[in-house]
Nucleic acid binder design. Structure first.
Lengths: 217, 217
DNA sequence: CGCTGATTCAAACAACCGTTTCAAACGACT
DNA sequence: AGTCGTTTGAAACGGTTGTTTGAATCAGCG
C-alpha cells in the first residue's frame, strides 16, 4: 500500500492533478501516464485498476490528514478536561490549522485547492466505490469531529446542526475547489485580486458565525 | 429550438435525469436513448451533438426561470421606487419563490434537486462549452441579481459581498444537489427525516444572515 | 557468470464511445 | 395514387477507453 516507489509516486502526482482539473472519468489513464512519463501498463501493475488508483490518491492525503487531526483532537480534549464542553473556535481552529499544515510555501496554494476540489468530486461524481471506500476508512474521524462540534454548540439541536455543518462544508468545498474560476469572476466584478488567504479570512467567520448563531428555529 | 416535439421531449427528460445522477461524460447517448425509448440517432438528428443536448437541457429550465425572475425583479423595483435601496429579504424572497414555483406537487421535490445538481455540475465539470454558453445567455440576469443584492447591503464592500454570495451559492448547490445522500446521513445521525422544505427553512436564514452580517472586515 | 524475481515496454485486446450513413416508414399535399 | 420533406431504424464507422499479454530489461545474489 504505502511503498515509497518512484513510479507509483509519479503516477499519484499526475493523477491527483488531472483528477482535480478534469474529474475522474474524463481523465484517461493514457493522459496520466503521459504526464507522469511512465508506461501505460504501470498503472495496472502498481495499483491494479483505475478505481484503485482513485482510492490511492485519496488515501495519500486523507490518511495522514486524519491521523494528524485525530491526534490534535486528542490534545484538545485532554487540555480542556475540566470544562466538559470544548469550545467551537478551538475545534475549528484545529481543523483549519490541519488543513493548512500541508501547505508551507506560498505558491502551492493550489495544493489546498486540489484537496478541496477532490473532496467535492467525491460527493458530486457518484463513483459508488469511492463513497464506500471513504465511509469504510474515514467515517470514525468524521463522526468524532461532528460529535465535538455538537458538544461545543449545545444550544443548537442535532438535526439543525447537521444541516448547518453541511451548508458550511458546501460553502468551503464549492469556493475553495473552484478558486481559479471564481477569482477570475471576482476580478471582473470588483477589480480586486484575492489571495487564498484573503478568501479564507472571509470564509472562516462566515462559517463560524452561521454555525453557532442562535436562531428561532 | 423550442419545438414541442414528442421525441425531443422524451430525450430531454431522460438526459436531464441521467445527467444529474451521473454527470455529463459518464452518461452515454445510448443509455439516454434507451431510457427515452427512442433510436440512438435521434439525439444527433434533433440536437446535432451531445454538447448541444447538454445545452438544450440547461436551456429548457434556465430560460423560463430567468424570464420569470427578470419579470419578478421588475415588479419588485417598480414597487419600491421611492425607497432607492431594495431590501435584501425582498430580493431573496423573489429568488426563492421563483425556484420553488416550478415545483407544485409534493413528490417532485427532486425536480429542484436535479436543478441544483445540474448547476453544480456546470461549475464542477469543466465542460468549457457549457460555461461559455451559460455566460453568453444568462450573464445579464445574473449580473442584475448581484447588483440588486449589492444595493440592498450597502454596508458590505463589493468584494466581500462577492465571496459571501458564492459561499451561499456553494452551500445551496452542495446541499440541495446532494439531498438524498445527506438526508440518509442525517437519518443515521439525528434519527430525523427531513423534507426539502425543512431543509430550505434552515438554509434561507443561514444564507440571509451570513450575507448581511456586519463584520469587522 | 547465470539464475531469479521484479519492473518496464510496445503491442494488442475487447468493449464502448459519439457520430454518420442510408434505406425504410411516415404524413401531408395535389 | 404518387410525390415530397420529415422522421425513424438498424448498422456500421473511426476513435478512445481500461485492461491484458508476453517479451525485454533490470537489480540482486549465490
Amino acid at each position: 500500500m504505502t511503498e515509497h516507489n518512484e513510479t507509483a509516486t509519479r503516477i499519484l502526482d499526475a493523477a491527483e492533478t488531472l483528477f482535480a482539473e478534469q474529474g475522474f472519468t474524463e481523465t484517461s489513464l493514457r493522459s496520466i501516464t503521459a504526464r507522469a512519463k511512465v508506461n501505460l501498463a504501470a498503472v495496472n501493475y502498481h495499483f491494479g485498476s483505475k478505481e484503485e488508483l482513485v482510492q490511492a490518491v485519496f488515501e495519500r492525503f486523507l490518511t495522514p490528514f486524519c491521523r494528524r487531526l485525530d491526534k490534535a483532537l486528542d490534545e484538545l480534549m485532554a487540555r480542556s478536561e475540566q470544562s466538559t464542553t470544548p469550545n467551537l473556535e478551538g475545534v475549528f481552529g484545529v481543523l483549519a490549522r490541519n488543513m493548512l499544515s500541508g501547505v508551507e510555501s506560498a505558491r502551492n496554494d493550489n495544493k489546498l485547492s486540489i484537496f478541496m476540489r477532490l473532496l467535492g468530486l467525491a460527493y458530486t461524481q457518484s463513483q459508488g466505490h469511492l463513497r464506500h471506500y471513504l465511509r469504510e476508512h474515514y467515517d470514525a474521524t468524521y463522526r468524532r469531529f461532528i460529535l465535538l462540534i455538537h458538544q461545543s454548540t449545545p444550544h443548537v439541536s442535532p438535526n439543525e446542526l447537521f444541516w448547518r455543518i453541511h451548508f458550511a462544508v458546501g460553502a468551503a468545498v464549492f469556493t475553495m475547489g473552484n478558486v481559479e474560476t471564481l477569482r477570475a469572476m471576482a476580478l471582473n466584478d470588483t477589480h480586486q485580486d484575492n489571495t487564498l488567504e484573503n478568501i479564507l479570512d472571509k470564509l472562516v467567520p462566515f462559517v463560524a458565525n452561521a454555525l453557532s448563531e442562535d436562531r428561532d428555529h
